[in-house]
Design a protein around this nucleic acid. Structure first.
Length: 457
RNA sequence: UCCUGAGUAGCUCAGCGGUAGAGCGGGUGGCUGUUAACCACUAGGUCGUAGGUUCGAACCCUACCUCAGGAGCCA
């Protein structure tokens, strides 16, 4: 049907001059009729803006107008001319309009605002809305920016497995992967892989093996947690970026994490200006200033011990008591990021009792070289650590956590053969997207959200 | 999983013991280089589900389901 690749609206709307005899394809947003002509607003997804098409009532194709309802797909031949009316620079003076696919009155997306909750129930159609087309264009560009950030620094992208038999301890509940029939009493040895396997909760452990070979690596892929978490910030399937760097200590790790967040805030401003304008106007009025502040101001770093002190001295009464040795609660993190620092902040050197076995023990004997990067409004966006590279300390920690060395033999081998200091972190891609778009629910920044009890597509 | 709140027309909501309502969207007619156009008319509902209280329940009670906000777990 199409002999040439059609020009997108992104290209056409950026035109410096009028264009004759072009063809446009897209989906109808609205149609308004007047006596002499009809106005059709069309979008094709290539950019936020749509194109106004003017169909003269004298054209034969004007008889199609009653069937050109919101949601229909059309193809239009015409000339791109300067619009005589306010509201748009260009418009397409139609010569012929063809209806490609009609949409009747049952089309759920009307010419009016819809709630994100309703749009979640029609996840197959919501990318056609202003909000979601903007979100998913940003998602694509941020994904590319992440690869660019690491590739420009010479990092290698490693594809760690999705199916794994190792539990990255501390990361949460796992989804079991099996070919055994429900209710069968077959043993794990009879299963497809001859052992229990799961969907990965983190590529970190495998990432470490590649860092200890290629130097600096990163993973970027789907991650699965079977936690019964029902919040705006958790999904059972999400995408995570996990860099792992040989010869990095915690300080270098934190520096990279900060640079990473700053780079992506900058990419948002530079590469998604139309989308940013939309989000700043309709989603989060403070978005632009928050991104600008992220770029301009140095990130603060506060040790866990100092964080506990400042919380105790804040004069605030918190719902959960502030106790050294226990995790910081959401209200504590929010106070630090949103009221004390008023910007991104990294908390480091957490008590070892609340952190997993692989984090490097500090000389004080009480803390480990762990860090969390918190941003206002979202909380933890990055969590990382320097890894324990000393064989004896690692095996002792494993014993203390009740883990069998045999299960982690390959991981321990990294400390047995040419061990080096190394560090890494995990950044939640969806949380990053929430940060750069202002969208407040994780279900609205991932194409098809998987949350407890919900996987309809 | 816990706490709180909400489920009424395709969508957004009002009604809160006595005949089921509005705006948007759809249809019909009118007007207009219109901008989520405007004006008039019109069609459209087992009031989340199941029980209960009552002469009478969308409204009160109980259970369940779903969704949202907050909490925990974390990215």
């Amino acid at each position: 049907m199409f002999t040439i690749m059609p020009d997108t609206l992104r290209y056409i709307l950026a035109s410096e001059s009028a264009l004759t005899s072009i063809t446009v394809r897209g989906w109808v947003r609205t149609r308004r009729d007047s006596k002499a002509c009809s106005f059709i607003e069309v979008t094709d997804g290539s950019c936020f803006k749509g194109l106004q098409i003017v169909v003269d009532a004298s054209l034969p194709c004007s008889s199609l107008m009653p069937s050109i309802l919101t949601g229909a797909s059309i193809e239009v031949d015409g000339d791109l001319i300067a619009s005589p009316a306010a509201g748009q620079k260009w418009e397409l003076q139609a010569k012929d309009v063809r209806l490609l696919g009609e949409a009747d009155a049952t089309y759920p997306l009307q010419k009016k605002g819809h709630t994100p909750e309703f749009l979640r129930t029609i996840a197959h159609l919501r990318p056609r809305t202003n909000l979601f087309s903007n979100v998913f264009r940003v998602r694509s560009r941020m994904s590319f920016a992440i690869h660019r950030f690491f590739q420009e620094k010479g990092f290698f992208n490693v594809h760690t497995p999705v199916i794994t038999s190792s539990d990255c301890e501390g990361a949460g509940e796992l989804f079991r992967v099996t070919t055994l029939k429900q209710g069968s009493n077959a043993k794990p040895e009879d299963d497809f892989f001859g052992r229990p396997t799961y969907l990965t909760v983190s590529g970190q452990l495998q990432g470490e093996t590649f860092a200890c070979a290629l130097g600096n690596i990163y993973t970027f892929g789907p991650t699965f947690r079977a936690e019964n978490s029902n919040t705006a910030r958790h999904a059972a399937e999400f995408w995570m970026i996990e860099p792992e760097m040989a010869f990095y200590d915690l300080d270098a790790d934190m520096t990279l994490a900060e640079e990473n967040v700053r780079y992506l805030a900058s990419a948002m401003i530079q590469e998604c200006p139309e989308e940013l304008e939309f989000f700043s106007k309709f989603v989060d009025k403070n978005l632009l200033s928050r991104l600008q502040q992220t770029i301009d101001q140095p990130f603060q770093r506060i040790s866990y011990t100092d964080a506990v002190d400042l919380l105790l001295k804040s004069g605030r009464t918190f719902e959960h008591a502030v106790v050294w040795g226990e995790g910081l609660q959401t209200e504590h993190e929010r106070y630090i990021a949103e009221e004390h620092v008023k910007g991104p902040v990294t908390i480091f050197n957490y008590p070892k009792g609340i952190k997993p076995f692989y984090m490097r023990q500090n000389d004080d004997g009480k803390t480990v070289a762990a860090m969390d990067l918190l941003v206002p409004g979202i909380g933890e966006i990055i969590g990382g650590s320097q890894r324990e590279e000393r064989l004896d300390v690692l095996t002792a920690a494993m014993q203390h956590h009740g883990l069998s060395e045999a299960d982690y033999q390959w991981y321990v081998d990294l400390r047995r053969y040419g061990s080096v200091p190394h560090a890494g972190y995990g950044m939640g891609f969806e949380r990053l997207l929430m940060f750069v778009t202002g969208v407040s629910n994780i279900r609205d920044v991932i194409p098809f959200a998987r949350t407890p009890g919900h996987a309809p597509y």
